[in-house]
Design a protein around this nucleic acid. Structure first.
Length: 883
RNA sequence: GGGCGAGUAGCUCAGUUGGUUAGAGCGGCGGCUUUACACGCCGUAGGUCCGGGGUUCGAGUCCCUGCUCGCCCACCA
């Protein structure tokens, strides 16, 4: 590399570095997999963001987690494909463009016509997609932009066509008249999933339906929707309900309308609810629709597609459903037909997109026989061919799949995949073919018309893992990268999307679309509330990246993505990760500043500090790799955070900073400092790609000849050195013991104290002696002595026991008043004794000794001995010293 | 009405198959211009692991039960 710079600037400037580094990665096509089939492929298809507007925090989290996964896999040598794309998002996008159109030109889509309107949506899409892709790049997404896909691209269109054709041929797609959810604002049918129940407080009205031939007698029905009485076809009572036995077979007059309708009996009616008499409106209630079919009742539709009362509603024609309700209630009241009104809280369906109350509506729509497709989709998860993480979601998946209902896939919209069905104007034949038909296969007429509707967006999304790879063509990509490895997405679209992908892709290819589904949590504000524009608590990821840098945001996400928990983002929450970036930068500055010329792999493994560090590095590598394999991002990030900050910076760098190490033994530690830093950068690179790559650029010329993004990910190959590790830990404990004592005794940091490290065992002391100047420097000790003796010098020192027969004694004269210290020591002894009692009672307990595993028993014994030794030595000291 | 999840330090949360004296970050307190970093360093306080039963040698962890919160699903008008 030609652009190496010898030393790091004092400050890291993400705003300058991030775009520069991203460009560099693109230049060398770091994110595009190659054609090498000897390399194992790894594939992750990006959940395509909607082209409705800009990315939010949820997208940033998605991009971060997926980038962590694929960057690591790439570094591990996999032929890695992360395929990006965007979704046309039918209703959502059409709504946005309609709104804009109305605001800027005061026009509706009908003013423009279908063709012209679609042109506008495409313009919007081009603009919006550019914004979104720019944002993904800012986050650092290492996706393969050469394969960028859009759900309305030619490829996906062909895939949709093929899939529709096959399912139609197999009888799994069919057209049917049925009751569906209708959004009167969007003026389209919706699937069950696009309707969200909201708890609303309304009223329950009781209305008199008088007998046809005897106005003195009446059935009183209870309803929450009086306006639908215009379409009533019957009143139903329970066959065994004695209260209404006299009404069986009779007829009643529909209030206000005066139409005569029958009284029917059906066991569906709940005798306990309301009055036990139920008005049946087959055209406006799903249950009534079923009952209507059963009893062959007429379905009287009284509303148009805007949910306004139509001709069938007589005098109420033209009123909105809300106005009609008001008027009908007051008219009933005026006629004395309103028996009672009470408050009633119940669940009412609303359009997921526009929050308008949905209207049940009977209409002709296209459906997928989802129950049939679900069979295989259930099996592949049961058989663990597909693993869903976190595991709790498997149950949710099964529950939904097992109770699945027909999926309404037609939408009365313009923006989307037009339904590939034609009808013959002559003979009304339905024509479904792979290519656009020109003649009717039935009557040879040439006047054909295509179905006006488009498909549910999720139909094309459901084919995403295969349509992006070229299916139905047997492309090289499909062969190499399918089935994909991971589907990483939010749990909120498990049914919408993941379930549909499994159903459709398994059906189309006979293979699973992905091996693992990882469902990430939702991003929320500091109070755990969903971010929404109306609440004003939305945080813009770009704003955060602008002030803190992308790596800070990414590290924050990694540290806070716990299984099954929300990620909370608010002002100030990212400070910790921002500080971490800064810490890493400065540690690197220190290391590269002191050891600018380390050339080869040359770690001195005779130096115990090196071994101590390598030992922990090995454990960290192992844990980090394991955690990432299992998608425990928080754990991987946490281990790296602590290894870098606590072990490498606070301990290792501080130790080698002492004159003994930095000057006398510099050659022994410098390779370690540099090489472990390299490992840290590589380990952190998937999480914080920018700052690590930037630091990497500054390493000595001979070392790093390629970008960090293309380097290999560290595995646990640094060796284990338990003995040296324990030794250096002892030294650290000595330093900490002295520091603690200094703290509690209030000794000024500049004042030196005198200390003795003591042990009855010379062999325990021996390896510690070479660290004497280190301890002196780090603990502020002057003339550290090592003494082999059985008894401490009681007149001179106060004790801080360390462990395994080693203690540190400080000169009393340095410490001033130590009475408080004695008190503390007595408390400590008390705690130790309690712990010892617990341990001993365990060991005395024969069932524990019999039943517990040997290593647990040994552990308790060892612990007991250590506690005892510590307690004994403190107690002894107290006995001898307390006046 | 069903299902799922959560309740651990002041706050936000970890705690892997039950097994040392229950941890982190932030915040608090005391101190520090110690040769990279005050976005820092050193030290320190703080917890009946929601309540109640049970299983076990041993429970924050498993079972039952109660309470409180959150989410998802559901056609009782």
């Amino acid at each position: 590399m030609s652009d190496l710079i010898p030393s790091l600037p004092a400050q890291y400037d993400p705003k300058e570095a991030e775009p520069r580094l991203y460009k560099k990665w693109l230049q060398i096509a770091a994110f595009t997999p190659d054609d090498d089939d000897n390399k194992k492929p790894f594939t992750l298809i990006m959940p395509p963001p909607n082209v409705t507007g800009v990315l939010h925090m949820g997208h940033a989290l998605m991009a971060t987690l997926e980038d962590i996964i694929v960057r690591r896999k790439r570094m591990l040598g996999f032929n890695t494909l992360w395929l990006p794309g965007t979704d046309h998002a039918g209703i959502a996008t059409q709504m946005v463009v309609e709104r804009e159109l109305l605001a800027s030109e005061k026009k509706t889509k009908h003013d423009l016509g279908r063709e012209e309107f679609l042109k506008r949506v495409w313009e919007w899409k081009e603009h919006s997609q550019g914004t979104i892709l720019g944002q993904l790049r800012k986050i650092g997404a290492s996706s393969d932009w050469t394969r960028l896909a859009f759900t309305l691209d030619e490829g996906p269109v062909k895939a949709v066509r093929e899939c529709f054709y096959r399912l139609y041929q197999d009888g799994l797609i069919y057209r049917s008249t049925a009751m569906i959810h209708w959004c009167p604002r969007c003026r389209t049918a919706l699937s069950d999933l696009e309707v969200k129940g909201e708890t609303k407080t309304g009223s329950l009205w009781q209305i008199r339906y008088v007998l046809e031939n005897d106005p003195s007698q009446a059935l009183v029905v209870a309803t929450t929707r009086p306006e639908t009485l215009l379409g009533d076809a019957a009143v139903a009572v329970h066959p065994d309900d004695e209260r209404y036995a006299a009404f069986h077979g009779k007829k009643v007059r529909l209030p206000l309308v005066d139409r005569v309708i029958p009284v029917i009996t059906d066991a569906y009616v709940d005798r306990e609810f309301g009055t036990g008499a139920l008005k049946i409106t087959p055209a406006h209630d799903p249950n009534d629709y079923e009952i209507g079919l059963k009893h062959k009742l007429p379905s009287i539709n009284v509303m148009d597609e805007l949910a306004q009362i139509n001709e069938a509603g007589g005098a109420y024609k033209g009123l909105s459903r809300e106005k009609a309700r008001e008027k009908i209630v007051s008219d009933l009241e005026a006629k004395g037909l309103l028996e009672s009104t009470e408050k009633y809280t119940h669940n009412v369906g609303h359009c997921d997109r526009c929050k308008t109350m949905v209207e049940p509506r009977v209409s002709q729509q296209w459906f997928v026989n989802a129950a049939e497709l679900a069979k295989q989709a259930i099996r592949v998860v049961e058989d663990k061919e597909i693993r869903i993480l976190p595991e709790e979601w498997e149950k949710v998946y099964f529950e939904w799949m097992r109770n699945i209902r027909p999926w309404c896939i037609s939408r009365q919209l313009w923006w989307g995949h037009r339904i590939p069905v034609w009808y013959c104007n002559q003979c009304n034949e339905t024509i479904v073919e792979k290519e656009d038909p020109t003649v009717c296969p039935n009557c040879r007429a040439t006047e054909l018309r295509q179905d006006d509707d488009v498909l549910d967006t999720w139909f094309s999304s459901g084919l995403w893992p295969i349509s992006t790879l070229g299916w139905p063509k047997e492309t090289a990509d499909l062969k190499r990268f399918y089935p994909t490895d991971v589907m990483e997405t939010g749990f909120d679209i498990l049914f919408f999307w993941v379930a549909r992908m499994v159903m459709l892709c398994v059906r189309m290819t006979g293979k699973i679309p992905f091996k693992t589904v990882y469902l990430h949590p939702m991003v929320r504000d500091e109070y755990g509330q969903k971010m929404s524009k109306t609440k004003g608590n939305v945080k813009d990821p770009l704003e955060i990246i602008d002030t803190m840098g992308a790596d800070s945001l990414r590290m924050y996400f990694a540290l806070n993505t716990f299984h099954g928990r929300d990620v909370r983002v608010h002002d100030g929450s990212l400070e910790g990760s921002r500080n971490f970036v800064n810490k890493l930068w400065n540690a690197s500055r220190f290391v590269l500043g002191h050891f600018p010329h380390v050339a080869g792999e040359n770690i001195d493994r005779t130096n115990p500090i090196n071994c101590w560090l390598l030992h922990q590095l090995t454990l960290t590598k192992r844990e980090v790799n394991k955690a990432l394999e299992e998608y425990r991002f928080y754990e991987a990030a946490g281990k790296l955070y602590h290894f870098t900050w606590d072990t490498y910076c606070s301990r290792f760098l501080e130790m080698i900073k002492t004159p003994e190490e930095l000057e006398t033994r510099k050659l022994e530690v410098e390779s370690t400092a540099v090489e472990v830093l390299e490992d840290i950068l590589a380990l952190l690179h998937p999480i914080m790609p920018f700052v690590t790559e930037e630091i990497w650029r500054h390493f000595p010329l001979e070392r790093n000849t390629q970008l960090l993004a293309l380097s290999s990910y560290p595995m646990d190959n640094s060796g284990e050195y338990p003995e040296q590790f324990a030794q250096v830990e002892r030294v650290i404990e000595i330093v900490e013991a002295v520091r603690t004592q200094r703290g509690v005794s209030g000794i000024s940091p500049s004042a030196k104290v005198h200390a003795v490290v003591y042990s009855p065992s010379a062999s325990a002391l021996e390896p510690l002696q070479r660290f004497s100047s280190l301890v002196e420097k780090m603990a502020g000790v002057e003339g550290l002595a090592f003494e082999t003796r059985a008894e401490p010098d009681k007149k001179l020192h106060i004790l801080r026991p360390v462990a395994e027969g080693v203690g540190v004694y400080l000169l009393k004269a340095d410490l001033g008043d130590v009475d408080a210290e004695f008190k503390k020591m007595r408390e400590q002894v008390k705690e130790l004794r309690e712990a010892i009692v617990r341990a001993e009672s365990k060991l005395k307990n024969s069932s524990f000794v019999d039943k517990a595993p040997a290593d647990v028993i040994d552990g308790v014994k060892k612990q007991r001995d250590e506690l005892k030794e510590k307690a004994d030595s403190i107690e002894k000291y107290l006995r001898e010293n307390e006046a």
